[in-house]
Design a protein around this nucleic acid. Sequence first.
DNA 1: CTCGTTTTGTTGGAAAAACAACATACTTAC
DNA 2: GTAAGTATGTTGTTTTTCCAACAAAACGAG
Lengths: 217, 217
Amino acid sequence: MKKYLKLLKETNLFEGIDESAIEAMLGCLNANKSHFSEGEYLIRQGERIDRIFVLAEGRLHVQSEDFWGNRNIFTSISTGEVFGQAYLSGEAIMNDVVAVEPSIVISFDADRVLTTCSSACRFHTQVIRNLFFALSKNNVRLVTKLAHISKRTTRAKLMDYLSLMAKKAGSPSFTIPFDRQQLADYLSVERSSLSAELGKMQKEGLLQTNRSRFTLM
Amino acid sequence: MKKYLKLLKETNLFEGIDESAIEAMLGCLNANKSHFSEGEYLIRQGERIDRIFVLAEGRLHVQSEDFWGNRNIFTSISTGEVFGQAYLSGEAIMNDVVAVEPSIVISFDADRVLTTCSSACRFHTQVIRNLFFALSKNNVRLVTKLAHISKRTTRAKLMDYLSLMAKKAGSPSFTIPFDRQQLADYLSVERSSLSAELGKMQKEGLLQTNRSRFTLM
DNA sequence: CTCGTTTTGTTGGAAAAACAACATACTTAC
DNA sequence: GTAAGTATGTTGTTTTTCCAACAAAACGAG
């Protein structure tokens, strides 16, 4: 576990806390490390969770699939992000979490994280604060996605999403964490319509794209 | 403020804390009460907030309106719910919050709430915990809405939404917190299409509706 | 390199939603 | 009760998406 101190220090959960303090907390928080290979499921719809997870390496998708195989991708989680904290209110999780790259996940006992213990963990309060902000960010992200998919046309959704990605990247050129099918599932549109619309937009000179790489003009 | 102790005790933020303890905390948390009349805005897009709000009475809508007047209703907040906690990560709020009924709102200094103080507030930890769960619920609610509006057809969205409302009400008859236009703005569809679809569904015997009252069959 | 597989692009017809315009029902103030 | 204003329902047309099927390009294993 020591090996991962550096990674943990970079995560949102332990921001502002130095390695030695993290190490001291690991036991108290009942830390646990797991590896997942591409395509493997970390969490399945309907499960109840009592742990908080940090992605130390890799990439995950939070998604759900209905009876007919229609996939809905809620969000893509990248290294350093916290997840699972949104499902601690006792309700069953309604999504699957699946690794889309080989991933390393470190988890903690949620109760222990949320309860400030007597003495040992000086920085525990900071962890709770960080967790709170992570959850808050999560919320903002969901609202952002809601804004995207409540746009009426495929083009409007794309515009909204791509502008945001460009803004985030700080450059008109950027790479998205989705392939075409995944992007369609994220924006809740048909893959073929998405491809068609992207084709039109390229012809109109609005953007250029090759696979997951985009450049807005 | 004393007058509102009973109301506060019923809110999610102070769940499990008795009135005397709440009263003791009010000063520490820099509590503040405001009244809003129907149609009045509590918070406007772009503002930054450093307080946490509890709706003691009334009903609010969290919504945003674009340049052309297209309204998008994110959620409806009812008595006892906490709001504002999703925007403490420093980012500007991207919605308006507007009273749709005469409302009473009690607010607290966010920093004070999030920082356990020395001694006076024995139940402070519980408040933080409650806040966390409120935020977590908020998150679940957003994911639920995402699930609704990522359905492709107006009918599917309606089915999804109405089934949930029935389940929540524990009865096939229930009242929704929206009129037709608001429901359309919530589900991201056209009002006329919504009305038309509801008409069809009634003819097919799937449900009955009068204004905001619905009965599923 | 070659073959099989996966991803992406393209197209035309079917289905659905958006839009506009108007009819009807309900509410409110006077 | 009436008039004005608001909310809801209805209909026909236009626009967009969905769907299915196939073509082209990229990728991976041997």
